[in-house]
Design a protein around this nucleic acid. Structure first.
Length: 740
DNA sequence: AGCACGCCGACT
DNA sequence: GTCGGCGTGCTC
């Protein structure tokens, strides 16, 4: 006999609002079983239709607003035994959602990025030497040998750790396991994240570095929000300086986060960190195996991981105690997330620091205009690091005017006689050269000589790029791949294809013909599958086993090659086409970084830029090493046009599979645009930069307004006035990367 | 985001 | 006559 039966009254049950990691407009209400204690931030498992999902308690259910009927409520299944999501993380998720105009749940999904993060921890797989002898037919490659050496004694270890120590990929470990030489055991005691020790191995800093480091460390120890631009050329020791800020955070008992563009998260960087702090930091990036992700996520949530280094998504981890963010290579476009929730990790990091009331450091050799302007108007403070070698390390930059006959390359070749001669001299002197071309594959366009047909991606407005190394055609936008055809798909003529323009593979071919004895290495994302491949090439270059390095952007990152004295840029104008006001800034940043590869240490370097527009301000600034006046001119132009960072901008991207519907929706949006306001400019609709992407037609509208106006409420009203068919998607891109 | 429900073409 | 395409709508 219970009270309920007697009275016929059911006590009103407690309810909670649970935010689910789905693009829903609001949290859903659930009933809390009597014996379950939940607080805001608790991770819970709840039913949704036929599914079970993890969510986060967003607030108690007694808030205002209409409540869903009591009888619709379903009970929370269970509470997850983890520290609740910190208040600041939840506020940050909400802030990002509001800023980017995305549903809160869509942002939350990034914060619980592995839904499996909340599942009970499973044992990881560890590898150890098996009893079996090494079979005779097993090819003992150097990597395999190192692994067997590493595992000859000591406890079983994770594939990722073994691979890191052996400098190879986890595939090699798995390969040895398949061959029976290694066996797997479940790793019951998961590896801890050892405390980085701020006193482990402090570096001796130069005077300027010391001042900068002390300044940052003081800000970190004092706490409170501040933003600092750390501006210094390659080789000025930025990393050592911000390491001292990280050390200060550790001493203050705070967690620290270092954001790097994905490709800069190299073994070299991790080694440097380990050298300074005794252990590696916790890593966070897209290529981690799910069990390791989960393990890392939980370690961050429990505060066990004290320093995290990661790509942009590391920003959304549930740090209980974050006290510092460093954004290295602050200017990099890779911080802009372009699909799903569209956001710029650098800007969101500043917001995160503001919410958490702690310092943020933005480091770069070529800061973005946005950041420079913020430093100039006093919103950020600024530390300039002079080069450690004075001006002596500045390479000599020559512009090769490709319009001049005597400097033009021969037919179907891409290297000017001047550059060829310089390469020959460099190698003769026993030094190394580098050729940079930011274009993967053999040629950017392939066409049929007999009918003029151009090989195009079936899903995108983009040419298919021939990759001769793999004998395949690739679309660089959607991942479409096909075997290189023998005959033209249009006129069926055989062997009629002509390659138009150069890609790195084609430049490599030219160089191989010019210098048949040279030892040539390629560095592109195609030839470097994974960080260990990169490491191998870097070692080869350092050991002097390579005379000439040819590659794309992956090569531009801060690797230090003492014998590299010549950098040739095959097509310096490449990034300038298209007329986007931001193109100059980007091209300058990229080429400056590439130029920085030449001649560090005692050997002077030189840089040769092949260009058809030597009078262009970008080329002039590179040749005269005058970054600041170039950027001042850029800033003036932007100011006059009221372009970011002097005004605000947002893009609406309308996409769908039916071109007519997309056009109609884009036109309807155009008609409903807020044209009555003098201070707003609406542009478009126009075809988006890639008019068709992954089989979806795309149109774009831009809205531009003064800095003082917040665009989000305007966009909200605008979008509410237009009804769009369900098959059409309208994405909002606040602060779009491209202004066209 | 899933997953079900619901209306129009090629098959055992 | 059914199996199955994915368009639209709902999930507390």
């Amino acid at each position: 006999m219970t009270g309920d039966l007697l009275s016929g009254v059911t006590a009103p049950s407690a309810r909670v609002r649970v935010q689910l990691p789905l693009p829903l407009p609001e949290p859903y209400d659930y009933r809390v079983p009597g014996d379950m204690a939940l607080v805001p931030g608790s991770y819970v498992e709840v039913p949704l239709g036929p599914r079970r999902l993890f969510g986060v308690v967003w607030a108690d259910g007694d808030g205002q607003g209409e409540r869903v009927e009591e009888r619709k409520l379903r009970p929370v299944i269970r509470a997850i035994d983890l520290p609740p999501m910190p208040d600041i993380t939840r506020r940050f998720v909400e802030w990002v959602a509001a800023y980017t105009m995305s549903p809160v749940g869509a942002v939350l999904r990034m914060a619980v990025s592995v839904s499996a993060a909340l599942e009970d921890p499973r044992a990881l797989t560890a590898y150890m030497r098996s009893d079996a002898a090494v079979p005779d037919d097993l090819r003992l490659t150097p990597a395999r040998k190192r692994i067997l050496e590493i595992l000859s004694d000591g406890p079983p270890r994770l594939a990722a750790d073994i691979a890191a120590e052996a400098g190879c990929g986890t595939g090699v470990v798995r390969g040895l396991a398949d061959a029976g030489v290694l066996t797997t055991v479940p790793m019951l005691a998961l590896p801890r994240f050892p405390q980085p020790d701020p006193e482990a191995n402090p570096k001796t800093l130069s005077g300027a570095q010391r001042l900068a480091a002390d300044d940052l460390a003081a800000k970190v120890s004092a706490g409170g929000y501040s933003a600092t631009l750390l501006d210094g050329v390659t080789g000025s020791g930025k990393t050592e300086v911000y390491f001292e800020a990280v050390a200060a955070a550790l001493r203050a008992g705070k967690q620290a986060l270092v954001l790097l563009p994905e490709i800069a998260l190299s073994a070299q960087w991790l080694d440097r960190f380990a050298q300074r702090f005794g252990v590696r930091p916790a890593e966070w990036h897209s290529e981690m195996a799910p069990p390791l992700r989960r393990h890392t996520w939980r370690a961050v949530a429990k505060g066990e991981a004290r320093v995290v280094v990661g790509a942009r998504s590391a920003l959304f981890l549930p740090y209980p105690d974050l006290g510092l963010i460093v954004v290295d290579e602050e200017h990099e476009a890779a911080f802009k997330q372009e699909d799903g929730v569209i956001y710029h990790a650098r800007d969101m990091a500043v917001a995160r620091a503001h919410l958490g009331r702690f310092p943020i450091v933005l480091a770069s050799a070529t800061p973005s205009l946005e950041t420079l302007v913020n430093a100039e108007n006093g919103r950020y403070s600024r530390i300039d690091l002079p080069s450690r070698h004075g001006g002596a390390s500045m390479p000599d930059v020559t512009l090769i005017d490709m319009r001049r006959k005597e400097q033009a390359p021969p037919a179907r070749a891409w290297l000017s006689p001047v550059l060829r001669e310089a390469l020959a001299q460099t190698m003769l002197a026993g030094e190394q050269g580098m050729l940079f071309l930011n274009r993967r594959g053999y040629a950017p366009l392939t066409l049929c000589r007999s009918c003029g047909h151009r090989l195009q991606c079936p899903n995108c407005t983009a040419w298919l790029v021939e990759h001769r190394l793999t004998k395949r055609l690739q679309c660089h936008h959607c991942g479409y791949q096909a075997k290189s055809p023998d005959a033209c798909p249009e006129c069926e003529a055989e062997g009629s294809f002509v390659a138009c323009g150069p890609g790195v593979e084609r430049v490599a071919e030219e160089v191989a013909t010019l210098f048949p004895d040279a030892r040539i290495a390629m560095m592109t994302s195609d030839t470097l599958s994974g960080p260990q491949a990169l490491r191998t090439v870097i070692e080869q270059v350092k050991d002097g086993a390579v005379d000439l390095l040819i590659g794309t952007q992956v090569m531009a990152k801060g690797h230090h090659f003492p014998m590299l004295t010549l950098v040739g840029v095959v097509d310096a104008d490449l990034g300038l086409a298209g007329g986007d006001p931001r193109a100059s800034e980007r091209t300058f940043q990229l080429l400056h970084q590439v130029a920085g590869r030449a001649g560090r240490e005692e050997r002077p370097g030189r840089v040769m830029l092949q260009t058809y527009m030597p009078e262009n301000p970008v080329m002039q600034a590179l040749a005269s090493h005058d970054r600041d006046s170039f950027l001042a001119v850029e800033a003036d132009q932007r100011r006059q046009l009221e372009m970011p960072p002097f005004g605000r901008m947002a893009a609406l991207i309308v996409s769908g599979e039916d071109e007519g519907l997309v056009d109609a929706a884009a036109a309807a949006l155009g008609r409903a645009a807020p044209r009555d306001r003098e201070d707003l400019t609406i542009l478009g609709p126009a075809p988006a930069p890639l008019a068709v992407l992954r089989g979806r037609y795309r149109r774009r509208l831009l809205i531009k307004g003064p800095k003082s106006v917040s665009l989000q409420p305007i966009l909200y009203d605008w979008l509410a006035r237009v009804e769009v068919p369900a098959s059409i998607r309208v994405q909002v891109d606040i602060d779009p990367y491209s202004f066209l």
